[in-house]
């Protein structure tokens, strides 16, 4: 990546004051309650750690099916006998979903759709295979 950590600009989500909006004839609660978003807006009410986010973003990598295939190719290059074998036989974990992988101060952080759903304090209704 060409960009340095200090060059990034973090976009922070804005808080929404529904009471004030409703008083000014703009009632969004009915629409948004149907989408089950109250947990999400509660979550927005908190501090943002700008430098941590930048730290995370610079080191983030997308682990999707192409990355998984590249990983397999790398293993085959190291050991040609593994060609045509499954991921389990290569000693790799089964690829189930797309992930964003990064680390903060040496601690690995993985973000998937479920993690975001949990952070929004909301249960996922349907399962996302990611492939």
């Amino acid at each position: 990546m060409k960009l340095e950590e200090w060059q990034f600009a973090v976009q922070v989500e804005i808080l929404v004051d529904f009471v004030s909006l409703t008083r000014n004839n703009c009632d969004l609660t009915r629409v948004l309650r149907y989408q089950d978003l109250s947990g999400y807006f509660h979550m927005l009410d908190g501090p943002t750690y700008e430098n941590l986010v930048k730290h995370f973003w610079v080191r983030a990598k997308i682990y999707d099916k192409y990355a998984a295939m590249a990983e397999e190719d790398h293993f085959v290059l190291l050991d040609p006998n593994l060609k045509g074998k499954s991921r389990a036989e290569m000693g790799l974990k089964e690829f189930t979903r797309t992930e964003i992988r990064s680390c903060i101060m040496g601690i690995p952080v993985t973000i998937t759709e479920e993690v975001i759903g949990r952070a929004c304090r909301r249960m996922l209704k349907d399962h996302f295979s990611g492939i």
Binding site: M1, Q7, F8, V10, F56, W57
Partner: peptide
């Protein structure tokens, strides 16, 4: 959100996009 995050990450790696979305959401995950 996840797909938008993937899109933004790809953009910032390939096209030098400087915006980092979801600052608060990522902080909450941390």
């Amino acid at each position: 959100i996840f797909h938008h995050m993937l899109w933004a990450l790809e953009k910032s790696q390939q096209n030098d996009r400087t915006f980092v979305p979801y600052g608060r959401l990522l902080s909450e995950i941390f």
